Simulated assay, not measured.
Amino acid sequence: MTHKIDFSTASSGALIEALCKRLDEIRLSRNISQADLAAEAGVSRSTLTRLADGKAISLDSFIRIMQALRLTDHLAALLPDPAVRPVDRVRLEGSERQRASGKRAAAAKWRWGDEDSQA
């Protein structure tokens, strides 16, 4: 069961609950018992029970569980590399920055004395 959450507007408590429940769903989808995962991650089984209930656990335990589930490659996506500026990201993606511009009608060439004929 996937928990849909808007990460940009959710409270910290809602984010913790969603992340913990997602980890537990991954454990269940891989058919791993709490006891086996606890032993592999080096955390207590009660920590995994709190995780399954969507309750906060320590960051260290969260990372250990991710490591045991072989999900550490996803940790890099949590925070962007501060050395890469947003403009550099656009260049790295191969996209060029474009500006919107409407087509302009060609203006008639103006000459001295035209202002008298327009009046």
Rank of each mutant, 00 (worst) to 15 (best):
M1V: 12
T2K: 15
H3S: 13
H3P: 02
K4I: 11
I5G: 01
I5S: 05
D6N: 14
F7T: 07
F7Y: 12
S8R: 06
S8P: 02
T9L: 07
T9Q: 14
A10G: 14
A10E: 03
A10C: 14
A10F: 02
A10I: 14
S11G: 09
S12D: 06
S12M: 06
G13S: 10
A14W: 00
I16D: 00
I16Y: 03
E17T: 03
A18H: 00
A18E: 00
C20N: 12
K21N: 01
K21G: 01
R22H: 13
R22P: 05
R22N: 15
I26D: 05
R27D: 03
R27V: 06
R27N: 11
S29I: 00
N31A: 10
N31C: 08
I32T: 02
Q34T: 07
A38V: 03
A39P: 03
A39K: 15
A41Y: 04
A41R: 12
A41D: 04
G42Y: 09
V43I: 13
S44N: 11
T47E: 09
L48E: 14
R50F: 11
R50A: 15
A52E: 14
G54K: 09
S58T: 11
S58G: 10
L59R: 10
L59K: 07
S61F: 12
S61G: 04
F62C: 03
I63D: 03
I63L: 14
R64W: 05
I65T: 09
I65P: 13
M66Q: 06
M66T: 00
Q67P: 10
L71A: 07
L71P: 15
T72Y: 01
D73H: 07
H74L: 05
H74Q: 08
L75D: 00
L75A: 13
A76N: 05
A76C: 01
A76H: 04
A77I: 08
A77G: 09
L78N: 02
L78K: 03
L79R: 07
L79Y: 12
L79V: 15
P80C: 10
D81V: 00
D81A: 02
D81R: 02
P82V: 01
P82A: 10
A83P: 00
V84F: 12
V84I: 15
V84R: 00
V84L: 14
R85Y: 05
R85K: 12
D88K: 02
D88V: 07
D88C: 14
V90W: 13
L92K: 01
L92Q: 08
L92H: 06
G94K: 01
G94I: 13
G94L: 09
A100I: 15
A100G: 13
A100M: 06
S101F: 04
S101N: 13
S101G: 12
G102Q: 05
G102W: 06
A105K: 13
A105F: 12
A106K: 06
A106D: 07
A107I: 15
A107V: 10
A108Q: 07
A108D: 15
W110S: 02
W110H: 03
R111S: 12
R111I: 03
R111M: 01
R111W: 00
R111Y: 08
W112D: 02
D114G: 08
D114L: 06
D114Q: 04
E115N: 12
E115R: 00
D116C: 04
S117N: 05
S117T: 14
A119Q: 01
